[in-house]
Design a protein around this nucleic acid. Structure first.
Lengths: 338, 338
DNA sequence: ACCAAGTCTGGAACCGGTTCCATGAAGGCC
DNA sequence: GGCCTTCATGGAACCGGTTCCAGACTTGGT
């Protein structure tokens, strides 16, 4: 209700002076500044961000596009984004865009077109060429988490190398009969994550002189997804591998549950390794390649805000490290009864 | 870049007419309307929401305050809120406010004070009296999910009745030695959920003529929380109950894992029931009282928008139903070796 | 034929800030 | 002492829409 004009009147100065005093831009004597601030406090003045952004073009808000909320990686990223933005005085508009959302076009054409944000962070969304163009035309900086996006600084882990490392861990333990359970590139448009992890797996296998044919099984990227796949895969003792590289910890958990249910001992009869560093990994004693989604979120915010500061300082893409944490879900294979 | 003035000029009308044509308010001939719309389309005009809300006071945005993102219930609510708001042309500003957040005051004093939303939905946040007053003073409608909030329409399930029902299910199977594992009221300020579920449990026990002393154990509201508690609780065979009522499915999952690890058969030696209807319940074959967070989210949006339509139409609180889904984690207790 | 009500349009004020520009006072330097 | 620079402040334009108001033109009822 109270406008800056009221503050100015109460402090006995002009609107312009009050604005300068409160925003800290331009010359104001210490004395008047105090007077204005006191007046503002007295009537409980809060600046209208609408009016301010109308003229400055700055909204102090960042838009976030994300395909999932409840999956661990995404939830974690979201929390860290929110946190980091809050500290910097930005709030966050959330656009949840599941892979096959019917609202997808509306989000781009209507919501994002309103430009009620200073920048966008896109988390694990596979953007079409057209959508990338669309975003570029908005004239707002864009930072991506995951996957390369044309002309956009992104933050990611090296999926190929991480998958390779995970597979090599199994190989180094002496496993030869290894299977990869991961996401399918077709039904989930979850970027290149799936295909990159598959490629890393295959690279490691081939380098070890092993065949990769028939070594990949698709699963939904969830614990039940891993569980279902595990029951089907491990049910037949003759075709059972000695080790599985799961593309995510949640899949790995499901596989472990399936194994337990079938009376297969982990790791004695079956080794399992995942990727993520999910907080439940400790409970499942899962060996995994941990990535740090919170670090990715924080870095994304830092890069975006830096780009907001220096118009056009095109930042480069960053690859964040992963680290192998060995727990009790992997061991050397049992001597095979031949 | 293109403003409504450009559209007006191109269409050969006044700004006022262009505004009326595009917004649909006031008299415009069909002919001029078409002309204006064509002109707008031609130059790719998108109205500036800032300018509009500056004068109308409406932002087409709703603020959501939520303490967790990755816990199932909250993630689910969040997704449904986002979805429902999107359909109605609203976008959503997210304020993640973990129980002991150092940013808590800042969110209320700074971010919420900016009033960049038409209304607020508060999900499972225990608001202090002062905070409730603060929100009321903003003059924006507020809808709560969970727990009673003074002077605010809320949506909730009947926690007492649901807990009672869950406990009665165990009692009706013949269990007498039942324990409740739930959240502690102290370390997590997660509203009255914890205490209400505990009360429902106690009511059922007392009604069955059983003692409730020593029948409650606190656990973190997560799977590892349940797991840890399970190991501790079930480790000693002499003190082991025949059934556990877990305050959430995630806790129940943890308990089941702990039981399996200790070689305790579920449900033969131990029955477990939860509350939630978590998607993993099927996999764990968990008997549970399912609630419908998505329905809660949708209803919250409906109520909020209704209140935005008719200023002051103080809606009442709604209690949504829960339903018992019986799976294979509960059965009659084994005849006890006495 | 006249007046009232309804329809259509343009001009101008307004929402609440920021910022450009002009004016004036004070301090530093030759 | 005169002049330039820096600091301090007020007036006014402006951001991009919406809405009030006045005027003009139709239509219809009596």
């Amino acid at each position: 209700m109270s406008a800056i004009a009221d503050v100015a009147r109460l402090a006995g100065v002009a609107k312009a002076t009050a604005s300068r005093a409160l925003s800290g831009h331009g010359y104001v004597s210490a004395e008047t500044r105090d007077k204005v601030i006191a007046a503002a406090r007295e009537i409980g003045y809060v600046a209208s961000p609408n009016a301010a952004s109308l003229v400055t073009g700055r909204t102090q808000n960042v838009g976030v596009i994300i395909p999932f909320i409840s999956r661990w990686f995404f939830g974690e990223v979201l929390e860290s984004l929110e946190q980091a933005l809050l500290v910097q005085g930005y709030d966050m508009t959330l656009y949840n865009l599941p892979p096959a959302s019917p609202e997808r076009d509306r989000v781009f054409d209507f919501f994002l077109a309103r430009k009620r944000f200073d920048g966008i962070i896109s988390v694990g969304v596979a953007l079409s060429e057209q959508e990338v163009d669309h975003l570029h035309r908005l004239g707002r900086p864009l930072v991506g988490i995951g996957g390369p996006i044309r002309g956009v600084p992104t933050i990611e882990i090296d999926d190929v190398a991480s998958a390779r490392l995970a597979t090599e861990h199994l190989l180094s333990l002496g496993h030869r009969d290894i299977v990869h359970v991961g996401g399918s590139q077709i039904d989930e448009m979850d970027f290149h994550v799936h295909s990159n992890r598959l490629r890393g797996f295959q690279a490691a296998m081939v380098a070890a002189g092993l065949s990769v044919s028939g070594c990949f099984y698709a699963a939904e990227f969830t614990m039940p997804g891993g569980y279902e796949r595990g029951l089907a895969l491990l049910g037949d003792p003759r075709r059972r591998p000695t080790a599985i590289f799961a593309a995510s910890d949640e899949i790995a958990f499901g596989l472990i549950l399936a194994a337990r249910e079938l009376g297969i001992r982990v790791p004695t009869e079956l080794s399992v390794i995942g990727i993520d560093g999910h907080p439940h990994a400790e409970m499942f004693r899962l060996t995994t390649l941990v990535q740090y989604p919170r670090a990715q979120g924080e870095l994304a915010v830092r890069i975006l805000l830096a780009e907001l500061g220096t118009r056009g300082g095109a930042a480069e893409s960053t690859v964040l490290p992963t680290s192998l944490v060995i727990r009790a879900s992997t061991s050397a294979p049992r001597a095979r009864p031949h």
